[in-house]
Write a protein that binds this DNA or RNA. Structure first.
Length: 407
DNA sequence: TCTGGGGTCCTAGGACCC
DNA sequence: TCTGGGGTCCTAGGACCC
């Protein structure tokens, strides 16, 4: 929502929501939308009345825009603090070792100011001796001044007391229920809880959480993230699909996208799973099928992976079933430097590598699907399996044809 | 009618090894 | 009566994160 506001200031002060794929659920909300009681993840068809009555501004997800803003914010942070871990699309941990403790709050302010000025994105900053405490500081700061330094802060315990247990990093719904049974209703009570009781239920991570709350760092900053061990591309279809050919096209496209991700992190996959299933919200005859293939040889070569995906699909597809979702997962991922030759290899690896490099470069420079395999279909927007984004804002920052006009 | 997508880590239990 | 000690690998399930 912050990204949308940058290019559409008229939305400021209004309830705004951004939707998931196929304009299904509300997955981002402005404060005004939250105040209306729109919950995270609620299906949009359940709140149509609310949307009409309060003129809620509804937008599709604009991933190109959000990815670009995410990178800009990260680059800005990295200019101010050298040691930085990108934690998610909208969060980062910064290592303040070497910065003067007396100026932490001031530094926080500077970060906020700079990010706002350079990117237009509002940020909040929490400072503390552990990630768990920093997250709590940030959570609290978000609602007030935007910066909160909990290092040597005498207020820490009272802030922890005002932090609901489910707002602690690592406590989800299940753990929250359990902890509440023991009277551990807020972060302060967790901090003072018995390690044994927590560990029995939550394992080693429970122990770590308690220690982090006590200011002992158990999750050090990790500035160079390791390659993914799993790569998954899956989509829910706007309409149910019965046609084998259409499904084959979709699965081929997922395999192709997964292959590109694999090459981006310089890896090879040794196995693939393909799954298809019917609408899980329909109570009648739910069907889920998955087929896993182990490759004779690890690969990141798109045509090979498309081929495997089609073999797997053929084994699980049944005529007459309405499929609502499909996906491709790659596993047994290894660095491409660990490539092992097999004796009877049908693929010329050197040529394949060169081809993929060319494809990735062209698509990197000229747009994601500038060149693609025919197996993924050539139907453009008419493709039956394509995700729907009916209310998307322009790709203001990443497409020459969609730059904002200034008049 | 209509309900997202992509990840991680830990644990327990089974099967096996010396 | 009484049955060691130390490992690995794999899978399924459960929890969490954004």
């Amino acid at each position: 929502v912050s990204c949308e506001l940058v290019f559409n200031p008229a939305l400021e002060g209004k309830p705004v929501i951004v939707l998931s794929n196929n304009d299904g659920c509300a997955v981002a909300r402005s404060n005004e939308a939250k105040a209306l009681g729109i919950k995270m993840g609620v299906p949009v068809f359940k709140i149509t009345q609310l949307i009409d009555r309060h003129k809620v501004q509804v937008l599709s997800s604009n991933y190109a825009l959000y990815a670009d803003f995410s990178q800009r914010v990260a680059a800005t942070l990295a200019e101010i603090v050298p040691e930085i871990e990108i934690y998610s699309i909208d969060e980062a941990f910064l290592d303040l070792t070497g910065f003067s403790k007396d100026n932490f709050s001031e530094l926080g302010e500077r970060i906020r100011r700079t990010v706002r000025k350079w990117t237009g994105i509002p940020a909040s900053v929490g400072i503390a001796p552990s990630k768990t405490l920093a997250k709590i500081a940030n959570h609290t700061a978000k609602k007030a001044d935007g910066v909160l330094d909990l290092t040597d802060n005498t207020l820490t315990d009272s802030i922890l007391e005002n932090t609901e247990i489910e707002d602690v990093w690592g406590v989800g719904r299940k753990y929250a229920n359990y902890l509440r049974c023991y009277g551990i209703t807020n972060a302060l009570r967790m901090k003072n809880a018995d390690e044994g009781v927590i560990k029995r239920k939550m394992g080693i991570n429970g122990t770590r959480m308690i220690r982090e709350l006590r200011g002992v760092c158990c999750y050090p900053l990790d500035s160079n993230p390791t390659a993914r061990q799993n790569i998954r591309v899956s989509r829910t279809f706007y309409r149910e699909i019965e046609s084998y050919d259409i499904l084959k096209e979709a699965v081929s496209a997922f395999a192709s996208r997964a292959a590109a991700k694999l090459r981006q992190q310089e890896s090879l996959a040794g196995a693939m799973s393909v799954f298809i299933h019917t609408n899980r919200f329909r109570e009648d005859s739910y069907s889920f099928r998955i087929e896993t293939l182990s490759f004779a040889q690890s690969t990141n070569y798109t045509p090979e992976l498309i081929g495997y995906s089609q073999i797997a699909l053929e084994r699980i597809f049944s005529e007459g079933i309405k499929y609502k979702r499909a996906g491709v997962m790659l596993g047994e991922i290894i660095p491409d430097t660990r490539f092992q030759k097999t004796f009877f290899d049908p693929v010329n690896r050197k040529k394949a590598q060169g081809l993929m490099k060319a494809v990735d470069e062209i698509n990197g420079r000229m747009g994601k699907d500038m060149v693609k395999y025919a197996a993924v279909g050539i139907g453009g927007k008419q493709q039956k399996w394509k995700t729907v984004f009916n209310r998307k804002s322009p790709a203001y920052t990443s497409d020459w044809n969609q730059l904002p006009m200034v008049s």
